[in-house]
Amino acid sequence: MVRINIDSKEVEANGESTLLELARKNGIEIPTLCHHQAVTPYGACRLCLVEIKKEDETKLVASCTYPVREDGITVLTQSPKVNRVRKMILEFLLARCPEVEIIQEMSAEMGIKQSRFILYDNDDCILCGLCARVCEEIIGKSAVSFTDRGPDRKVSTPFNEPSEECVGCTACAFVCPTGAIKVEEWDEIRFIEKWNTEIPLQKCAKCDMLYTPANTPGYILSKMQLPENLLRLCEKCRRKSVAESLSNYDVTSKNVIIKK
């Protein structure tokens, strides 16, 4: 059992693997942008920096990737040093993404009115790579990844062209902390602006409502064992058809056997 002191609170690790997890479980909030519990931590945004004290040594680490292993270390999440560095990082982020609400809010909380830095080509993307991680680890498609390097680094599709792999699930847009991935729908098409990718939408076999990107049901079926017809209907019709098929049975009778 590893015992750690976080902000002068003694906590015990119970299977938590990183400092961030442990702190959150004990009600200590550490700000993050690039962290999502569903995917492997990456340590990109650096906002979750904390100060670690061990004997006389002290160092700054990203709590989302720092493993809970050593016994008896002291962690400070709000020390002057941490706050100074975190404020600096926020100023950089604010210079890059002045229009992103969550960064504005975080900056205001830290008392930053305006960034000292000015960047002329603004971008809502903070290069945290959450979209790429979700696409790879959860969806299993890897339609996007980091490309180029240094100041040119960005997240993009292969050859910066409309993706052949994308199933249009928009999990990337869902996890994006800054809303940099915008999704629009028109005329039976779903368009993901950042990937320049258009995915046709499919109609429900019963009520003709557009309900899913056309290639998603096929992909889900290839991953999971589901009755093939189930995904041809929209959510409402699906529920209805299940209810209707149940009405054929006498559910009040004791003889009904539900197969497992």
Binding site: S142, S145, T147, E165
Partner: peptide, 10 residues
């Protein structure tokens, strides 16, 4: 995945 190769190539 092609995206991984493109990442290396760029």
């Amino acid at each position: 995945p092609l995206s991984h190769l493109f990442r290396l190539a760029t």
